[in-house]
Design a protein around this nucleic acid. Structure first.
Length: 355
DNA sequence: AACAGTCTCAACCGCCTCGAG
DNA sequence: TCTCGAGGCGGTTGAGACTGT
């Protein structure tokens, strides 16, 4: 059995729509409403197939479509949802009011994907292409010219520094490199949420800030624990304390996403600093629990954005330890690595730890 | 100014899903 | 339960705009 193609027919027009055609379609839909797309062309006097009409309406003519540049918040949402769900453009678009799946898809393919590649991250897996065995020369604000394309290429090829993400690169929060270092993380690119803060311009940013902080912290803990060489709490606590106190005022006691066993090689001191309790010996973690906990924190403080919408599509998938680690590392890197990242003007570049 | 290369995004294509009969 | 078709979805294409030489 073969299905006849939707859009075959003599004299059917293809290609760009004219304003005249647009007017006809708009007029018809205003009068009769959406639906029954197969019959619309004939009734509206259009030499187009119904499918083409539906697409034209849905992607372009619909009155509540938002066009133009994507905001910082929208970018972050796309990246997060793509990381968790892949190329589910319609699903992602549902989280971006007034954006169409086609627009989101185009934006990903033309902008975000390239940006991730520039940063040495595989846009398909959302993981680094490869860890850089030779960390790039530490960066300073001096001598960096973002507008210099040759600089950009070198940086992207090194996989260590995103031109667009300066001064806060993903590298500055690269957990694995931190753990491979003999030096204290503080001196060699520790995960410092304070240094990797988002704009505070919106509720969504606040939400993302919190998640970034959490993810980075948890990533640190898991990574250190799995290597059996836990970073001393003194190296972790400053950034955590800073970030938690400044960005969220979390009630840390309430946040214990993976709490089960007290038996682990995390020192009590560290746990205290982190403010949470893990069962690192448990082979599986329910990542959705983490998200659920996260979404419930300071619900009233999130403002207008619908967290449920953001988190609704995160399935309750149990992941193994490796996946958990990769997810957290990847997400935290994304969340702190963006050209729109807020830079605290009270802070010197010297305070920023680059690898 | 002319040309070539690159980028963007609207539109198309073909497969999939789901509901009606 | 099966068939059929409308609508939905993601991948791909290509025309036009843009940029560099």
């Amino acid at each position: 059995m073969s299905r006849k193609p939707c859009c075959v027919g003599e004299g059917l027009k293809k290609g760009a729509w004219t304003t005249e055609e647009d007017k006809k379609l708009i007029s018809y839909i205003h009068e009769h409403g959406e639906g029954g797309w197969r019959d619309i062309p004939q009734k509206a006097g259009l030499k187009r197939c119904g499918k083409s009409c539906r697409l034209r309406w849905a992607n372009y003519l619909k009155p509540d479509i938002k066009r133009g540049e994507f905001s910082y918040e929208e970018e972050q949402i796309i990246i997060m949802l793509h990381a968790s769900r892949g190329n589910k453009w319609s699903m992602i678009a549902r989280h971006l009011p007034k954006r169409t799946d086609n627009e989101v898809k185009n934006y990903w393919n033309t902008q975000l994907k390239k940006r991730l590649i520039d940063q040495g991250i595989d846009p398909l897996t959302h993981k680094p292409f490869a860890l850089n065995p030779n960390p790039a020369t530490p960066m300073t604000s001096e001598g960096q010219d973002d507008s210099n394309p040759s600089n950009l290429d070198e940086q992207s090829q090194s996989g260590s520094m995103s031109p667009k993400s300066l001064p806060f690169s993903s590298s500055s929060c690269n957990l694995q490199e931190i753990n491979n270092s003999d030096e204290t993380p503080r001196n060699k690119g520790s995960v410092s949420p304070k240094n990797c803060r988002f704009k505070k311009s919106s509720s969504t940013s606040k939400l993302l800030n919190k998640f970034a902080t959490r993810a980075a912290s948890i990533g640190n803990m898991l990574s250190a624990s799995m290597e059996g060489s836990l970073i001393r709490s003194t190296t972790l606590s400053p950034c955590l304390n800073d970030s938690f106190s400044e960005t969220s005022q979390f009630q840390m006691d309430e946040f214990a996403p993976f709490s089960h066993s007290p038996e682990q090689h995390i020192t009590d001191h560290t746990k205290e600093d982190i403010g949470m309790d893990f069962d690192l010996n448990n082979s599986e973690y329910d990542f959705s629990q983490f998200l659920e906990k996260f979404s419930n924190i300071e619900a009233e403080d999130i403002g207008g954005y619908n967290q449920d919408l953001l988190l609704a599509d995160v399935s309750s998938t149990s992941v193994d330890e490796d996946n958990m680690m990769q997810n957290i590392t990847g997400w935290s890197n994304y969340l702190v690595d963006d050209p729109g990242v807020y830079y605290d003007t009270n802070q010197d570049y010297d305070d920023i730890n680059f690898i």
